[in-house]
Design a binder for these strands. Structure first.
Lengths: 242, 242
DNA sequence: AGCATCAGATGATATAGGTCAATTCCCTGT
DNA sequence: ACAGGGAATTGACCTATATCATCTGATGCT
């Protein structure tokens, strides 16, 4: 089990710039207060710290305030399978609801601040706040759509299309958080990217090089700049993907 | 939009042998009655009929009483991508909750009887029946797990492993419905299987032949018998997959 | 019944991406 | 500041699966 985390300075859902994303917009102020009491804010974590392990009893879902997280599981033959990358404003940890145990591990990819949303209390809260529960079902439905987009990507698209799609997905998601859509830092390693996209590190690396030689991106280690977003999009015809 | 469907003879959730799967076990009888009023039973459909189209306004999720359904979407380049197969006792159609529009198409693979569960009324019902909403969240979470298992399969496993995993998944799911786990009819075509697993028809066909030559299965057209379930499982080391 | 179409099987060949290996360059810890 | 190890890149080669083509036997339509 994970080590106890320090709490950061008092804060609340009202003042959180993420609230529009992780909470239903239609929530009343009084409801927000109730929710606020339940959510455990803070949890600043260093790079490579586990948020939860596969097999852990499912207790909470987590919203990312800053940083990045990857979820992954260990397959029967002992290899790692990355199942998702999560950026600020996103919620992860749904995987445990069905079985009451997490099926994935989750680790921070960089220094991150998370909000823990204890699910038992949340469910109790949901009983009196249908909006809240509905909102969460929408978020889960979105996760389903994302996963299905990834399935399509994996079963139909070439290495270049997959990498381009991932870059565009990251770009779009950062943009939705008022961050730069064209210049950012990749929080994950090439190995993680390859693992996620069903490619080897070498292939990912080669695709990055090729993209760079075509002036689609400029990339130095983890810093990346998308030079030609349009052409990159056309390359990843599954543009709305991921 | 789809053509109107005939209703089959009166029936209800109480008497449905599927209820354990599509409904929370802990539901009170009085609650079940309320739910019963909302669900539209029947909908017997022929093979190759659309249940809903991508882009349709999301109104309902569907439980399968008999038959089989595939969900798929059309990618940007106009090709079909199968995203799931659904068997009796399973619920599909979650994809539309996030955006209020279905992102997938759904068609019957054979003559099927479905129960339509109108979502708006369901949500209203959920407000007074937290158990119901929680149960549905669990089902959605399960769908997420299945999708993630497929992602792993697609990004890590060979053609043989993929096909073996699908066969075992079908076997397991049929068994959970008290149907034969070793002898059944594949409701979908080789092309659908290949599409779903990210393989070509030819490869699927070759894998079937190879499995047959190894006496793992006996297969004649769509009728399949799993001869050596154990060896098939070891071949698909992602046994708990899909 | 008979033809047309489609699903499936199998063979020959091509290729994208995997595997293995070597090299460079960060980053981390001491 | 330096050493060591891991992350990333690049090249050479190989293999699993795609592609293309042909054939057979179902299935469905008139």
């Amino acid at each position: 089990m994970r080590s106890p985390q320090l709490m950061i300075k008092p804060n609340n859902c009202h003042s959180c710039r993420m609230s529009a994303l992780c909470l239903p917009l239609a929530l009343h102020t009084s409801d927000l207060d109730k929710l606020d009491n339940v959510i455990q804010r803070g949890k600043p974590m260093q790079k490579n710290q586990s948020v939860f392990y596969a097999g852990d009893t499912f207790t909470s879902v987590y919203a990312i305030r800053s940083g990045a997280v990857k979820s992954y599981c260990i397959t029967d033959d002992g290899t790692e399978q990355v199942t998702g990358f999560y950026l600020p404003g996103e919620i992860f940890g749904w995987d445990g609801i069905a079985t009451s145990k997490h099926s994935n591990h989750a680790v921070t990819l960089e220094t991150s601040a998370l909000c823990e949303i204890p699910f038992a209390q949340f469910e109790r809260l949901g009983a009196t706040m249908p909006m809240l529960q509905q909102h969460f079902m929408r978020l889960m439905s979105k996760e389903i759509s994302t996963d299905q987009a990834l399935i399509t990507l994996l079963s139909k698209n070439s290495a270049e299309e997959r990498v381009a799609s991932l870059l565009l997905s990251l770009s779009k998601r950062l943009k939705s958080q008022q961050l730069s859509a064209t210049k950012f830092r990749l929080p994950m390693s090439r190995a993680d990217i390859g693992n996620y996209l069903g490619l080897t590190v070498e292939t990912v690396s080669r695709v990055f090089s090729r993209f760079q030689s075509f002036d689609l991106i400029y990339c130095e280690r983890k810093e990346i700049e998308i030079i030609n977003l349009q052409r990159l999009s056309s390359l990843a015809h599954n543009a709305e993907c991921l």
